[in-house]
Design a protein around this nucleic acid. Sequence first.
RNA 1: GGGGUGGUAGUUAAGUCGGUUAUAACGCCGGCCUGUCACGCCGGAGGCCGCGGGUUCGAGUCCCGUCCACCCCGCCA
Length: 603
Amino acid sequence: MTLLSEGRTHDCGELREADVGSEVRLFGWVQKRRDHGGAVFIDLRDRYGLTQVVFRPDAEAASHEAAGELRSEFCIGVRGRVDSRGDKKNPKLPTGEIEVTASELTIFSRSETPPFLIEDDIDTREALRLSHRTLDLRRAPLQRALRQRADVLRAVRSVLDERRYLEIETPFLVRNTPGGARNFLVPSRLERGSVYALAESPQIYKQLLMCAGFDRYYQIVRCFRDEDFRGDRQPEFTQIDIEQSFATEEQIYELIERLMSRVFAQVLEVPLTTPFPRLTYEDALARFGTDKPDLRYELPLCDVTETVRGCGFRVFAGAVERGGKVKALRLPGAAPSLSRKDLDGLPALVKEVGAKGVAYARIQAEGAWQAPFAKTLDDEVKARVNTETGAEEGDVLLFLADGALVVNNALSLLRQHMADRFGLIDSERWAPVWITDFPLLERTEAGQGSEWTACHHPFTAPHPDDVELLDDPTRYGDVRARAYDFVLNGVEAAGGSIRIHQPDVQQRVFRALGIDEEQARAKFGFLLDAFRYGPPPHGGVAIGVDRLVMLIAGAQSLRDVMAFPKSQKGHDLLSGAPSPADAAQLAELGVSITAPPPSGGDG
RNA sequence: GGGGUGGUAGUUAAGUCGGUUAUAACGCCGGCCUGUCACGCCGGAGGCCGCGGGUUCGAGUCCCGUCCACCCCGCCA
């Protein structure tokens, strides 16, 4: 019998004082060797933990001899006896009460010196970690994150199964429908000249499933989007996609609240209070400058546009004249701790969102302002701003004056920055919130064809009270959608809507979007056809698994909760994808590449 | 498409005003060590300074270009 065929008796994280005296077999990787010439200590690691193994010359000479050649990351098996460590316990390890005195050692495989240490906190260039992802994945934080990811999915499945949602798969290779997120394209070999698109979401298919009578559907599904990537955006990502017939917003909210409660209870043992608070899109933007506010802290924004209209400070008055906004962020009691240098450094901070500057004022006794521009403002204006923002002595007010988008982006950034700086973020706290009443339509950038585009997607139902506005192009921007986002700690973790199921409403929305009947047929004919035969009212939601797990695992990036993520340019640094196709493959597909071959990097 | 940060030994970093042989720590290799757990002590090896070009008597350092990674704006119905 070999050690391998006998099998391991325990994992490397489970032996305790109570096991002392038993014979055990442990398999794992060498985390660390400490060779004292006599006793040789090995920290043996697997995904469950670390156990100290000791080899002694007097106990088993051959094993002791062999232990001398062990190096980091050798994969080994050990037979031995569990001994108490007596007064040599290591309180830092769960298994620190005991050690295994080895009587037999099998080296399953050797390891070259790894390019970086397999430790919890390594400070290694991420590119290197990604190109040696298998080693990176041996590290405890990634092991933990991927386990939590599986735990999250298990918890979600348990709720959905209890509630009789049916898991149904939908195609990845779908019809190419330009508009919305850019699709990855897959050329067809059997029909040269045509392409499939990789599904950016199962949206249309899940609506078809509703029409087919599967009144409660879910799928844990990969989605593909060929856009620019970020720390929280990858070319392929996973959604928990849910749709149900006869749904109302309230039912969807209740379901997600139940799902999240179960997930947090099971994975983190944290109770979430339900129902979650709600905030309209309009309020969110007004008070926090973003539709995904982090509500773990306060620091609301205050719109003072009307107050400073025509005032003596040209930066303010000018922005208002140009149709922009002036908003303030009040930092209670911040005056003593924010130096002139801190405040003068703020413009650099907001430069990245396109803001040209940040005005600030320290509030002194009786509401007087200490500010570079203080003289240009009437006392009356200052007093009104004080009242509106609630500013008191010792506070600092930060002002942004610019177009609405820049003002909101910059103040949202500053709000975050200051919350961080003043330690206002309770890392133990979870702040879920529903963002409701999104606009249905938004203006597109000039020169992109149609003037309006759907905020969510073209099948999102308008608010019943606003349907009539769809007949007045000047009011398009006022139409509210039955769409909602679930935001957790400032991260958009889920989003969805009640869909349109009435052909006439769908037609009006298409018209507003500048999609004529012919285009509608060409793009979405198969959905519209399904809607001719008694479509049920329906709606749903999609949860961003990667983002949710990122929050739960406390990770800074999606890359830390995905086993094999891609770089910001969409490269898989492990496999080298994407790579040039060979000529024969392209010929078979009837595809020719016009771009010059990539020069490749040596970085 | 745009703005920013970075790339020097296996790893993380230092490298001044352009000047002799490019430093340090960790890791690695060899030796010693029977209670370590950030083991210790002694010795050693290890470099296309991302890549290409330019300026210069001389470039890790200055200039231009380029590649890669990361952060952000746009984009992500």
